[in-house]
């Protein structure tokens, strides 16, 4: 399968400029990574509403909270590992607990950050943000969906976390698709197995579905782009109709998306499951596609997990 590729970050920058044009309450903060996160686009367009906080993520989150107290809608960006790890307590105490209108949009998440190595490859961010009450958690699958997700969270009061990768990723959604917070989308229908992908792992799920089709297996592919609130209706329907589920995430399988899906199904409609993702180990330097294969997050890994879990179907 071939797709055009696009950067999620560029789409974030584009969405910010669009928001800034129509809404004077939009303020953007960054922590010395505006070129990487693409908040620089907003900074160029609306310099009076952009504030670089320097390499001080904790203060950036607190400042974002204060701006929100003053009636602003705030976007705060840096790399995901710093936004959610370095500044975790500030996100919890100063943003989520007081329920303030701050959108944390973080880039360079997951192992596809590549060469920088494990210090920068966060695979805990979804778990950390998801565990905080009041927080909405969104992991868009591609550039256009990132654009729409940013516009969507700007319309909703309260804290949100949006996770983006570093790499250019295949464009698998259409500009015509509506982005609804809390709604997963079925990208391919199928009845033998459900492949539930998050973020950049939706593409391996789509490719695995093609591989499985050659073997006569009908795979449903779900793009689970909102992690909280979780679209349990779509997940339960898939479990009921397909009888087995594979989750795929570029994140630790411990406390990750697969764990959440498993918990949701266990309480309503448990089916055999297999989780594809980082196996609770730190990554290393390398090209992103090399790393995805090395740590078992390639297309073949998703297909293999599907075949394995189908053996356990009753």
């Amino acid at each position: 399968m071939t797709w055009a590729v696009e950067s999620q970050r560029k789409n974030y920058g584009k969405a910010l400029v669009e928001l800034g044009r129509t809404r004077k309450d939009i303020v953007v903060l960054d922590a010395d990574l505006s070129g990487s996160t693409r908040t620089v686009e907003f900074a160029k367009a609306y310099p009076e509403r952009f504030f670089n906080c320097g390499i001080a993520e904790q203060n950036m989150m607190g400042t974002a909270a204060g701006l929100a107290l003053g009636g602003m809608t705030v976007f705060a960006s840096t790399f995901a590992v710093f936004a959610t790890g370095r500044a975790y307590d500030q996100v919890r105490q100063s943003i989520a607990y007081p329920d303030l209108n701050v959108k944390i949009v973080a880039s360079h998440a997951g192992i596809t950050v590549g060469m920088d190595g494990a210090s920068h490859q966060t695979m805990e961010d979804i778990a950390l943000m998801n565990a905080i009450p009041n927080m909405t958690v969104i992991v868009p699958a591609d550039g256009p969906q990132t654009y729409r997700a940013v516009l969507a969270v700007a319309e909703r009061p309260g804290p949100a976390y949006i996770r983006m990768g570093r790499s250019d990723v295949p464009v698998i959604t259409s500009d015509k698709d509506e982005f609804v917070v809390g709604k997963a989308s079925v990208m391919v229908d199928g009845s033998d197995i459900a492949l539930v992908g998050t973020g950049q792992m939706v593409v391996p799920c789509l490719e695995a579905a093609e591989m499985l089709k050659q073997k006569g297996i009908s795979a449903r592919v779900i793009n689970l782009s909102t992690i909280k609130p979780l679209d349990t209706a779509t997940l339960i329907k898939a479990a009921r109709e397909c009888g087995a589920v594979v989750t795929a995430e570029e994140h630790n399988i411990v406390s990750g998306v697969g764990t959440l899906v498993a918990a949701a199904l266990a309480e309503s409609y448990p089916v055999p499951m297999q989780r594809v993702g980082m196996q609770d180990i730190f990554g290393q330097s390398g090209e992103s596609d090399e790393l995805m294969k090395e740590y078992g997050m390639g297309t073949k890994d998703v297909a293999a997990a599907a075949i394995k879990v189908m053996e356990r179907k009753k």
Binding site: V27, A65, G66, G70
Partner: peptide, 9 residues
């Protein structure tokens, strides 16, 4: 930090 943000606003 929050005071600063509010002051900016």
């Amino acid at each position: 930090s929050a005071a600063n943000g509010l002051a900016l606003a």
